[in-house]
Amino acid sequence: MITLTHYLVLSALLFTIGLAGIMTRRNVILILLCVELMFNAANLAFVAFAKSLGDPSGQVIVFFVITVAAAEVTVGLAIAILMARRLSTLNADEVSLLKW
């Protein structure tokens, strides 16, 4: 019998893998990919709670999360292209223009 706990543990593990990716990878495109992975882990938790509480509001929230993720990726990838063209690097560590 698969319970809410199973889904929540899976969601926590996926979230952790995404976080590990963000902290260890330096390619901005891969960092964005790992952010997507974390979004998905959160979505899974929302849908699991929606099922266990019998309230479809959780699924509506997932709809919003997907929309926000799409908007975020659009702008993020535009910035990545600019980085590659102007600074000819995709390494997040080499871009320190905002550093004081």
Binding site: T16, I17, A20, M23, R26, N27
Partner: peptide, 16 residues
């Protein structure tokens, strides 16, 4: 150049 994993061990540990 983008593959250099800065703080690979530390990042993995914190995530774990």
């Amino acid at each position: 150049r983008t593959r250099s994993f800065t703080l690979r061990g530390a990042g993995t540990l914190v995530a774990l």
